Amino acid sequence: MDQEIKKNEILSAFHFRHATKDFDPDKKISAADFEYILETGRLSPSSYGFEPWKFVIVQNKDVRSKLAEYASGARKQLLSASHFMIILTRIPKDMVASSDYIEVMLEHVQKLPPETLQAKRTNYDHFLKTSFAIEDDPRVMFEWACRQTYIALGNMMTAAALIGIDSCPMEGFNRAKINELLAAEGIMDPEHFGVSVMAAFGYRLYNPSEKTRRCAQEVVEWLE
């Protein structure tokens, strides 16, 4: 495919995508299409490649109804979206350099040889304690891990838009209450995860208004 055609297709997807509030409840995303969306999330980059995320797809209507009680910004989408996703983030104890989770990532997922593994762990430890200096603040550490999940979410929303599927990212929820609910329902292990963000996927019920953004000159600065 010609490179200009590819670029135009991607830009068209960005113009197409908007934060859909009302989904058509009668239109469902195919299993193959949603697997494709999830795969773009799975393959997304993260700091040090440590993938601090888990994608929970909530199709159970009873659970969606319970979520709506504590997610005022997602009530419409919980009722109408074809697929509803909660992205979980690893909590700080799993993200420190000495954790079992990081050991598994380095040895069994990234499959690093011993000397490379130790060097990367040492570098990561220095990053947490000195470069970014976040390890002593659990809230900052958790929010840093959450930022990684937004990379995956952005990729999934763009991938969806490329094939004509709508989406909506959402932070309009009570995090403490949603954490409690997911733990009580056996959906999330609070010893390892917390809620990062929610997202709905499906097909728009209404056409959106024209997309508005600041002009390039206001958001881009070149230093030469």
Rank of each mutant, 00 (worst) to 15 (best):
T20N: 01
K28T: 06
K6F: 13
D22I: 06
S30Y: 13
S12W: 09
L11A: 08
E9C: 11
G41V: 07
A19D: 06
N8R: 15
F23E: 01
K28E: 02
N8A: 15
K21P: 06
R17M: 10
F34C: 02
E35Q: 15
A13D: 04
D24V: 00
R17L: 11
K6Q: 07
A19S: 11
D26M: 03
E9A: 14
K27V: 06
S30L: 08
F34P: 08
L11S: 10
S12D: 15
E39C: 06
N8M: 14
E39W: 07
K7Y: 15
D26H: 09
D26Y: 05
K27R: 14
K28A: 04
P25R: 05
G41L: 09
I10N: 07
S12T: 15
N8G: 12
T20S: 03
A19I: 02
E9Y: 12
D22L: 11
A13G: 06
D33M: 02
K21C: 03
K6D: 01
S12N: 15
D22R: 07
E9R: 14
G41Q: 11
F14Y: 13
P25D: 05
A19C: 04
I10R: 12
K21T: 06
A31N: 09
R17Y: 10
H18T: 08
A31S: 09
P25V: 01
A13P: 04
I29K: 04
K28H: 04
K27Q: 12
S30F: 12
E9Q: 14
E35K: 13
S30N: 09
F16I: 10
F16C: 11
A32V: 11
K7A: 14
F14S: 08
H15F: 09
S30A: 11
